[in-house]
């Protein structure tokens, strides 16, 4: 397990965007993730690196409020995510976090534009077509705006997923294995794009991966080890 302070940035006046305190999680009596104390400052690009089964996804689920940790607490944007009731967690996630998955999880029945519109409608309660067009243009998919996910290449799909995660202007973008299925060139382009779009919208970036190819792009890294018995 890496030192918890590896990712600690100098604190800003507004405080860390994500803060873990004594965080660990056990399943069936076995510790599957142990972070301890950890902070992520606003605007940072952070990498959570570790092999399969090291607890990356567990940590992401805890950060996004999909899972309650066995021990410790985590706060997001100043709110104690792990202590909130389910509906409040949903609301905090909705207004604060954008998610990108390896398998994209775009709604196959909707076009790229409509996927973004749905995310916007659910998170913000309204649809801003101009903002959607701008975001699609920003990720280089203007010519594919009307395409369905199944009509997109892997790279185009990844860009569409990033666009969907960012269209709600979240303060935190969490990406789980965004480059695992990509070749070297596309993995590099993917990271470039995520940096560019996150910086452009002022979002903080947390990327979880076992893909060592992109590790050098992040100054701030948290290395997770393979799970050990509790």
């Amino acid at each position: 397990m890496s030192s918890p302070d590896t990712l600690t940035h100098s604190k800003t006046a507004q405080g860390p965007l994500v803060e873990a305190r004594g965080l660990s999680h056990a399943r069936d009596g076995r510790t599957v993730m142990a972070i301890g104390d950890w902070q992520l400052q606003p605007g940072a690009h952070a990498l959570l690196l570790g092999p399969s089964g090291s607890g990356k996804t567990t940590f992401i689920n805890i950060v996004t409020g999909l899972l309650t940790p066995s021990h410790g607490a985590i706060s997001v944007a100043g709110e104690a995510m792990s202590a909130l009731p389910p509906a409040a967690r949903d609301a905090l996630r909705r207004r604060t976090i954008g998610l990108v998955f390896q398998t994209l999880r775009l709604i196959p029945a909707l076009s790229v534009t409509d996927n973004l519109a749905l995310a916007q409608q659910l998170a913000l309660g309204h649809v801003d077509r101009a903002a959607i067009a701008g975001m699609i243009d920003r990720v280089g998919l203007a010519h594919r705006a009307a395409a369905r996910p199944r009509q997109l290449s892997q790279g185009e799909g990844q860009r569409a997923a990033i666009a969907r995660a960012l269209i709600t202007r979240p303060r935190l973008v969490v990406a789980d294995e965004p480059t695992s299925a990509l070749d070297d060139a596309n993995a590099a382009r993917m990271i470039d794009l995520m940096f560019d779009v996150a910086d452009g919208t002022g979002a903080t970036l947390l990327v979880a991966t076992h893909d060592g190819r992109i590790a050098h792009r992040f100054a701030n890294r948290l290395n997770l080890m393979a799970p050990v018995a509790a």
């Binding site: 999909l66 949903d90 999880r105 659910l122």
Partner: peptide
Amino acid sequence: GDMAMLRVIGAS
């Protein structure tokens, strides 16, 4: 998966 994703991105 879609339904889970919808829940994640804000569907009640």
